[in-house]
């Protein structure tokens, strides 16, 4: 596990000058991942925020080989790249060791890309799939996705006279991926650099497919001031809305158990997309959201190894 000082000696493989919004967590996730991966990688990217902000012709922020083809198929595209690599290695045409990383947003992963993802995982391509989960279709203006949390306000499930935002809970994608039985699956956030970079290292060393679901707060869609991106992600973990855990060869391990589990309210109240939680009738929404977080947390506790030391 590298320290920040060690990481700082490496090349930053995503340049500035990309067009992501001020305060976007997504590009800091990519920077952290590439610091670990190094330059001998091929990055695939689904259509979405990351692709559109980093590759506006004639400019690219990528200092590693990069391919985007479409929205729902990054797992398939990168499996083709990885297969060509295997074929050329086998033939002795290529000798260097390379890694393959696919990035998709929650739309491209939870929803439209889940089939291609599932197929690639089942086939066993050695690749790391990273979902930068900002919990809605942010690139196109905050439409709801399978990752959007309960009762969040989005542009396609807006809060109105007869609506309290998204009626359903978010899909537990990490569990769905873990069910594929691949060597390494983990959940982390943009704001836990040590946890994230450690997991990237494990994932890239896994002998087979690996998957990271990385919570990626969005200033525009979640409606909070741009300097709070790190704090908001940390609160998602401290409230157990987004636990840091990993599934290594089938074994669940919680990487952090908050010393004091904060009420979900502390995360909710910082975001404009939940502001109707604080209007008449909102207590009920909050209670329902809290109950689901508790249920999922208890389940995770029940199946997981506990970390050696707890956070303060």
């Amino acid at each position: 596990m590298a320290t920040l000082k060690e990481l700082a000696k490496r090349d930053d493989l995503l340049s500035g000058g990309h067009r992501a919004c001020a305060g976007c967590a997504m590009t800091s996730i990519v920077r952290q991942i590439l610091l670990v991966a190094g330059k001998d990688v091929v990055v695939g990217c689904a259509t979405g925020c990351l692709e559109v902000t980093t590759t506006i012709f004639p400019y690219s922020a990528w200092r590693v080989p990069f391919i985007h083809t479409a929205f729902e198929n990054v797992a398939a595209t990168i499996s083709g790249v990885e297969t060509a690599y295997r074929s050329l290695r086998k033939q002795g045409v290529l000798n260097k060791e390379m890694r393959f990383i696919a990035f998709g947003g929650d739309g491209g992963t939870y929803d439209i890309g889940i089939q291609a993802l599932s197929g690639a995982l089942e086939r066993g391509h050695r690749m790391l799939y990273v979902c930068y989960d900002n919990e809605a279709y942010m690139n196109t203006g905050v439409q709801r996705s399978g990752a959007t949390p309960f009762s969040a306000n989005t542009t396609t499930c807006p809060v109105g006279e007869c609506s309290t935002g998204k009626p359903q809970f978010n899909k537990d994608l990490t569990a769905i991926v873990a069910a594929h039985g691949i060597p390494y699956v983990a959940q982390t956030t943009s704001a836990h650099w040590r946890d994230l970079t450690t997991k990237v290292e494990k994932a890239l060393n896994a002998d087979g497919p690996s998957f990271l679901n990385v919570l990626s707060p969005c200033v525009v869609g979640w409606e909070y001031p741009s300097d709070q991106t790190v704090q908001i992600a940390k609160l998602a973990v401290d409230t157990c809305f987004w636990p840091l855990y990993e599934v290594e060869n089938g074994k669940y391990r919680l990487n952090l158990i908050p010393a004091e589990k904060k009420p979900l309210d502390e995360w909710i109240k910082r975001q404009g997309r939940f502001k109707h939680f604080y209007k008449p009738g909102g207590e009920e929404l909050l209670a329902k959201a809290q109950a689901e977080v508790d249920r999922r947390w208890e389940r995770l506790l029940a199946v997981s190894e506990k970390p050696q030391k707890q956070s303060k």
Binding site: T69, N73, T77, G80, T83, A84, S87
Partner: peptide, 10 residues
């Protein structure tokens, strides 16, 4: 999609 990825990989 995989064909395209493999082709772009040479």
């Amino acid at each position: 999609s995989a064909c395209i990825g493999a082709s772009c990989a040479g």
